[in-house]
Amino acid sequence: MTQQGVDAPGPQGAAAVVEPAEGADGALERIRTLVRGQQFLLLIALVVLVVFFTIERSAFISQTEISNLLNDWSTVVLLAVGETFVIVSGGIDLSVGSTVTISGVVAAKVMGGMTGTSEPVILIVGLLVCIAIGLLVGAINVLLINVARLVPFVATLATLGAGAGFALVISGGAPVGADSQAIEFTTPKLWVFSWPVLAIIAIVVVSYLYLHYSRFGRFTFAIGSNRFAARAAGIAVKRQIAKIYMLSGLLAGITGMFYFLRLGSGAPTSGSGEELQAIAAVVIGGVSLLGGVGRLGGALIGAAILTVVTDGLVIINVNPNWNQVAVAGLIAAAAALQALRPGRGLTSSD
């Protein structure tokens, strides 16, 4: 981190400094501060994108398409939420994509063996299996990070590979199960919302409160800002780290169940690369990869922007090769925006 990074005030700090200013100068400074706030700019970007795609194709805001967008946002948002906790704490979790895959495949195997049981019971068991697998992967990450003392990048890279490999071994490479009744659960039941999407929104709201309004959240930020100071302040750093990676695993497991519901099967490649989508959403959302800084709201909007761009380009029928270019451009723009913010940056000089 640069000297500027330590000393310069953040957006809120800047606002506090100019508080006594009066008249046109003060108003101008307040506007500048607001505009510099990454979430505000992201929201504007999201609105502009939605307007653009709607002008191009009015079908973009049809009831069916909003439902599609919510479904697609839900596939990445829980991973982004887990990743936000991890990244704010100064770590990274690369294993979430594999956790989605392995939990979906194992749950599909278990559910496939429950013939004669009613569908809701089967799906509840499936969800419990996914949660158990998610927590197990989280626990392995914790062991590697806290006990073997691997850096999170290496530890979760190992579980990423192992999870993907196990999913292939268990599934034999082919999708497991063909459950049409499960797919039925992902169709809209309350206007554009399906039950799983509503459940995911509820989890997102609870997570938001947890990160920004609880002691757990404050400890997470404290560890990410300065691990040594956090320990000196009496925070049980290792225990906190353990809870954070278990939470990330848990959310990835729940996402694995959502993937199963969408496909009606556990596919051995379903979560491949999803960790990068989640990290992209978090980075676009303005959460600093250096740890200690970020708002979950930003990550949620980041995930929404990714979804809107990816689906929007399909809706307006742009050559699909441009999709990856567009997402890469978004990440670069968001990182540049962070660098422009006072105090924090992701430029190479850091």
Partner: peptide, 18 residues
């Protein structure tokens, strides 16, 4: 689909709207 069935699902869902 980039080898991801969920992406293939999303593509088809979007086409059905478009």
């Amino acid at each position: 689909s980039q080898s991801q069935p969920t992406k293939a699902d999303a593509n088809v869902s979007n086409w059905l709207s478009s």
